Amino acid sequence: MSDLTVVQYILIALIFVWSGFVRSGLGFGGAVLSLPFLLLVLDEPLVFLPLISIHLLVFSSLTIWLNNRKGAKDRQAGGTGTVDWRYLGRLLAIMIVPKLIGVFGLITLPGYVMSSIIFVIVALYSLSYIANRPFRSGSKTVDTIFLMLGGYISGTSLIGAPLIIAVAAQHLPKEKLRDTLFALWFILVLIKLSAFIWAGVDLQLIHHLWLLPAAAVGHVIGLYVHDRMLQAEGSLFFRVLGVVLLVVSTIGMVSVWR
């Protein structure tokens, strides 16, 4: 990124502020809601994916640690932590093999077909949340298929989050949804980042000196917004979630159709 203009650097910094805000505000979307904009500035995915991966590792682990440290007294009084470790284990058991298949490219599916299916499903889920009638599949088989698809896409491009959260949001209380997803993203992204290192991909470490602070600004704003949403009525949380999912699916479908 050494040959970019000043305007491009500013735009990239602002997009990473947005990425940090979305990630901490909702618990997902840091990659899928920022990567399309980043590629408009510089059409080189392998420049940005390592940056996004390391940011997620830093901020997800920091958020979980701070939240659980803050809630230690509550747990002593009979409360629980902010991560549902049992459900996290179930998610990983379903997703780990498709994740590895995606990471190492053992199965190559037509990108436009897979993307189209995912974004249509996500759009339907988002509309149900906006209408305050969250879709319940009522089928473990359907949930498993969605999670396997999400794991595969996460392995190939780190944008499988919308499909995964469409399932996870049905089974987790809103107080534990974000941090449980953070723990899941940490594990999945660590696998992807290891593959980057193994393949000799440049991790762009020098650019963290200015992009980590940018993402941190958005992260702090997102934490405040997330706390406000948790204090609001439950339907508001899911409506906001639905709007974000609809934006994600719309951006994705436009990109695919082009």
Rank of each mutant, 00 (worst) to 15 (best):
H55P: 02
V58H: 03
L42V: 10
R69F: 02
G71L: 15
I54L: 12
L62D: 00
H55G: 14
K70W: 14
S34Q: 06
I54P: 01
E44G: 03
V58E: 01
T63W: 03
L49W: 02
L39Y: 04
F48E: 04
L51F: 05
R69A: 00
L35D: 07
V47A: 14
V47D: 11
H55F: 11
L56A: 06
S60M: 07
L38Y: 13
L35A: 12
K70T: 15
S53V: 09
K73A: 11
L35F: 07
T63Y: 03
F59E: 00
L62I: 06
S61A: 10
L51A: 07
F37R: 03
L49R: 04
L51C: 06
F37I: 08
S34H: 08
D43M: 05
L46M: 14
G71F: 15
L49S: 13
V32H: 03
L49I: 09
K73N: 12
L33C: 10
R69Q: 02
H55A: 13
K70V: 12
S61K: 13
D43C: 06
L51T: 13
S61Y: 12
L35I: 14
L38N: 08
L42W: 00
S53G: 10
G71W: 13
F37G: 02
S53T: 08
L57E: 02
L38G: 06
L42Y: 02
H55D: 11
D43P: 05
H55E: 08
L49D: 13
L33D: 04
S60G: 06
I54A: 07
L46E: 10
L33W: 11
I54V: 15
T63M: 04
L46W: 03
